[in-house]
Amino acid sequence: MRIVFAGTPEFGLPCLSALQNSEHQIVAVYTQPDRPAGRGRKLKFSAIKTWALEHNILVNQPVNFKSQAAISELQALKPDLMVVIAYGLILPTEVLNIPTFGCVNVHASILPKWRGASPIHNAILNGDEETGVAIMQMDKGMDTGDYYQITACKISDDDTTGTLHDKLARIAINPLLETIHNIQNYKAIPIKQNSSLATYAGKIKKEDGKIIWNNSAQKINQQIRAFNPWPLAYAILNGLNLQIIQANVVHNQSNQQPGTILEISKQGMLVSTKEKSILIEKIKFPGKNTIAISDYLNSNQTSLQVGQVFL
């Protein structure tokens, strides 16, 4: 089939590479316009664009699909199918109807749970035991289309959004290829979502990372894992935003105010919470690299002290 691929971040790369190595033809890649990034604010290509250019595939980057020019450009490609993975642009009905077989989306959740922009973050933040990938036929709603396949994936106790992202990106390959094969051979059977069970994962903001010490240690640990690698959980100490990279729940309960540093050892920095305590193992000071608490102790720094209270 003639396939147009639409995606922007790295999540879509394993599937894009698999499509390139399949019997199908990728006639173009759509990705969001280049964005300023870094301290120099230089324009940066998306991961998908970089890959496409390396493989000599046509790249189109419309700002949106409101213009007739953008619509005509897609029509001229005569696609049989459009595969959409974390593209980040709304596709109007006119676009969804251009490919012969419409548009298929890979969504990183067990739909209808966690429709929306940040399903991986929210699965960890919520303490879900499993998540997955859904291969769905797109309609005009937000992740509301009928699905063809859902593949589950267990969430490990030490999974972060980063590690789970990579697992799901790989898991999606075979279900996507199988679905495309079935669509091509008119064997695909769409299944309607039960919208009464839908939950929504809104866009993550930096301020969502602020730790509320009056939560339980389990909830705080989920927050730390959910916001790694971005935006990173943080707490305020002595006026500085201290980012918390890695931690574990400790089952002892303290009568100290939540957020109080109880102990600092080579194992980590023990901090009280509303329920149980949390052992912080890796941190990041502003403008510095990530450092393990054991290495912090070896460096003879003194900015962290027992009895201090995080805000």
Rank of each mutant, 00 (worst) to 15 (best):
Asp166Glu: 14
Leu168His: 02
Ala169Gly: 09
Leu176Met: 09
Leu168Lys: 02
Gly162His: 13
Asp158Thr: 13
Asp158Gln: 10
Thr151Leu: 13
Glu178Ala: 10
Ser156Glu: 13
His181Gly: 03
Ile173Thr: 06
Leu177Ile: 07
Ala169Trp: 04
Ile171Pro: 05
Asn182Pro: 03
Cys153Tyr: 04
Asp158Glu: 14
Ile173Gly: 03
Gly141Ala: 12
Asp139Val: 09
Asn182Cys: 13
Thr163Glu: 06
Gly141Asn: 01
Asn182Phe: 01
Met142Ala: 13
Ala169Thr: 12
Asp159Asn: 08
Ile171Gly: 06
Ala169Ser: 15
Gly145Lys: 03
Asp146Tyr: 04
Ala172Asn: 05
Lys167Ser: 07
Ser156Arg: 15
Lys140Glu: 03
Thr163Leu: 07
His181Phe: 14
Leu168Ile: 13
Leu176Glu: 01
Thr144Arg: 07
Asp159Cys: 02
Thr161Met: 10
Asp157Trp: 00
Leu168Asn: 10
Thr163Cys: 06
Met138Lys: 03
Ile180Gly: 04
Asp157Ala: 15
His181Ile: 08
Met138Ala: 08
Tyr147Ser: 01
Thr161Lys: 04
Ile183Asn: 07
Ile155Asn: 00
Leu168Tyr: 07
Asp139Tyr: 09
Gly145Phe: 00
Asp143His: 08
Ile183Asp: 03
Glu178Leu: 14
Lys154Ile: 14
Leu168Trp: 05
Thr163His: 05
Thr151Met: 12
Tyr148Gln: 00
Asp166Gly: 10
Ala152Phe: 10
His165Leu: 10
Gly145His: 01
Tyr147Cys: 06
Ser156His: 15
Tyr148Ala: 01
Lys140Asn: 08
Asp158Gly: 11
Tyr147Ala: 07
Thr151Glu: 06
Asp158Val: 15
Lys154His: 14
Ile171Met: 07
Asp157Glu: 10
Pro175Tyr: 02
Ile150Arg: 13
Met138Arg: 00
Thr160Gly: 11
Asn174Gly: 11
Gly145Cys: 09
Leu168Pro: 01
Gly141Cys: 07
Gly141Pro: 04
Thr144Val: 02
Ile155Ala: 03
Leu176Ala: 00
Asp146Gly: 05
Asp143Ile: 09
Pro175Glu: 10
Leu176Pro: 01
Gly141Gln: 09
Cys153Glu: 13
Glu178Asn: 12
Met142Asp: 12
Gly145Val: 00
Leu164Ile: 08
Met142Ser: 08
Thr151Asp: 07
Arg170Tyr: 09
Asp143Ala: 06
Gly162Tyr: 11
Leu168Thr: 07
Asn174Met: 13
Ile180Asp: 01
Ile183Glu: 05
Gly162Asn: 15
Asn174Glu: 10
Arg170Pro: 01
Thr160Val: 10
Ile173Asn: 00
Met142Asn: 13
Ile155Tyr: 05
